[in-house]
Amino acid sequence: MTGKLYGLGLGPGDPELLTLKAHRILTSCTVVAYPAPDTGPSFARQIAAPYLTAAQLEVPIIVPMRVERFPAQDIYTKAAETLSHHLDAGSDVAVLCEGDPFFYGSFMYLFERLADRYPTEVVPGVSSMMAAAAGLGRPLAARNDVLTVLPGPLSDDELAARIEASGAVAIIKLGRHFSRIRALIESLGLTAQAGYAERVSLAEQKLTPLAEVAEDTAPYFSMILIYKGDERWHPALAKTLGSGA
C-alpha cells in the first residue's frame, strides 16, 4: 500500500489558526513538504514550526521568488517525483500551504500531478482574506453583495471594470503594484471605503484605512478590502478593533 498525500491549509500566519484537523494530520505524517524561496526561510514552515518534530523528514520545494518568469512547471514536476518516492515507500506526506491549498495555493500543482495515483485529501485553511476582514472589523460582504477577488497584477482597466461591477472587493498580491492600485482606487472615489491589511494575524500586522497608509510600496502579504454596499461598515473600525490584535 502507498502512503497518503495531504494538502494542508495553514491559515494566514498565526500558528493558532490551524484547524484541529490540519494539526492532527501534520503531527502524524512522517514526511512534511513545503514551498520555500531560494533565499530566506519558508513562510509555510514558519507557521507549522511549533508542531514539527525531529523525527519528521522535511522536504523543501525550492521556488525562486523572481519578478521574471521561471520554469515553475518543471519545479512542481520534480517535486512530485520526489514525493512519489516517499508515497511509494508507504509514508504519508503532508504538503504545507499558506492560507488555503486551493485558493491561489501552490499545492494545486502537486495535486494535478499526484492525486490520480495516490489517495489524497485536501484540508482547507483560513484564508488571509477572511483574516483581514476579521482584523479590520468589517465583514467582507452581506445580503446579495457580489464579492470579487482581484490579483494586483491585473491591468488598471480590468481592475476598474471589475471593481465597478462589484459590491465588495478584495485586492490581493499587492507588492510592487500597490502605488498604482491606490491611485486607481482614488480615481474611482473609493479611498474612504477601502481598508488596508498587511501581514495579517502576525505580530507585525498592520490594519488601517487605506487613506492613512503613508508608504508607496507594500509587501506581497498584504491586501485592500473595499466595501461599496449599503451596510455601514467603514475601515476606520480598524483603529479600534485592530489596535490590540
Score class of each variant (00 low, 15 high):
Lys173Pro: 15
Ala131Ile: 11
Ala218Phe: 04
Ile185Gly: 00
Pro50Leu: 03
Ser128Val: 12
Gly152Lys: 04
Thr30Gly: 11
Ser179Lys: 14
Tyr76Pro: 12
Arg45Leu: 00
Pro151Ala: 01
Thr208Ile: 11
Val126Met: 05
Gly40Tyr: 09
Glu16Thr: 09
Lys173Cys: 09
Glu68Leu: 07
Pro12Phe: 00
Tyr104Phe: 09
Pro124Gln: 00
Glu231His: 08
Pro64Asn: 13
His234Ser: 12
Lys21His: 06
Glu158Asn: 10
Gln73Ser: 10
His234Asp: 14
Tyr34Ser: 11
Arg143Gly: 04
Gly90Ile: 03
Tyr6Lys: 09
Leu17Trp: 00
Gly189Glu: 13
Val122Tyr: 03
Gln193Glu: 12
Ser84Ile: 09
Thr191Asp: 08
Gly125Asp: 05
Thr2Tyr: 05
Tyr6Met: 04
Lys173Met: 13
Lys4Gly: 06
Thr148Ile: 02
Phe221Lys: 10
Thr208His: 09
Met108Tyr: 09
Ala142Glu: 14
Val123Leu: 02
Arg24Pro: 08
Leu110Thr: 03
Ile47Tyr: 01
Ser222Asp: 08
Lys78His: 12
Lys78Ala: 13
Ala218Gly: 11
Tyr51Pro: 05
His23Asn: 10
Ala94Asn: 05
Gly40Lys: 12
Ser42Leu: 00
Arg199Val: 10
Ala134Trp: 05
Glu215Ala: 13
Ala94Met: 08
Arg162His: 09
Met108Val: 11
Ala214Trp: 14
Pro153Asn: 02
Tyr196Ser: 08
Gln73Met: 07
Glu212Tyr: 02
Leu241Ser: 08
Pro124Gly: 03
Asp157Pro: 14
Gly11Glu: 01
Ser201Met: 09
Lys21Cys: 03
Val169Phe: 05
Glu81Phe: 06
Pro219Lys: 01
Thr77Asp: 15
Leu202Tyr: 04
Arg66Pro: 13
Ala55Val: 15
Gln46Glu: 10
Val59Ser: 09
Asp38Ser: 12
Ala131Asp: 11
Leu8His: 00
Leu83Gln: 02
Asp157Phe: 08
Val93Phe: 00
Pro35Ser: 00
Phe107Glu: 06
Ala211Arg: 11
Glu158Tyr: 04
Asp145Lys: 02
Val200Leu: 06
Ala160Asp: 11
Leu18Tyr: 00
Glu158Met: 08
Ala192Arg: 15
Tyr196His: 04
Val31Gly: 06
Ala165His: 06
Val146Asp: 13
Glu58Leu: 01
Ala161Arg: 15
Glu215Asn: 11
Ile185Met: 02
Thr148Glu: 03
Leu159Phe: 06
Val63Arg: 06
Arg232Asp: 14
Lys78Asn: 13
Pro60Ile: 01
Thr19Asn: 01
Leu154Glu: 12
Thr53Cys: 07
Ile172Gln: 05
Leu96Ile: 06
Ala48Ser: 04
Gly229Pro: 11
